[in-house]
Amino acid sequence: MNDLFVPLAIGAVVALVSGLGVVVARRPVHAVVALLAHSLAVAALYLMMAADFVALGQVLIYSGAIVVLFLFVVALLPAGGAEGPIGSRRVLSGVVAAGALLVALMAGLVAGGPGGSNVPIARNPAVGGVEAIGRSLFGPLLVPFELTAPLLLVAIIGAVAIWRRQEPLPDRDSPTRDSTP
């Protein structure tokens, strides 16, 4: 995989810059566009790691469905979803917590060293293919895979229920309703 270093680095830089755009963009519409670029860059990274089917799923589900859903919600929110000023205390807490997380992760990465993190990827044959993923999903991962079905069902019913609750109930005694035969 080391011959893919430069393309991987380009994809990683695009994913990181657009991810930064998602976090710092003031207007949510800009953040959604940055999220679209980010998801496409991550899909490119998956392709370079020989995960064709995951890249396809990323483009279809993330870029196709989730980003469009975010766009709809941003369009429906009042004032385009623009938020108020962010206090310096909030920024400080976010930066400190994320910095600590990053330091911890990087320490783990460095401590892994060339022996721990330098997995001999290049020697492995390219894995992937829909058939192998299907065998895995219906084999060792059968229980979580089957649990995604009730998860999606609950998500659908929950979204509809949350939305319906906000609608005014029809007034049965309303004079506009024609009850006379």
Partner: peptide, 24 residues
């Protein structure tokens, strides 16, 4: 190596997302 690059990218992305959740 390329593996370290992807791992570092993932770590930075996770920290970025965490900072966004805390700040916004």
């Amino acid at each position: 190596t390329a593996e370290t690059l992807v791992l570092a990218t993932s770590a930075v992305l996770l920290a970025l997302g965490a900072s966004g959740v805390l700040m916004r």
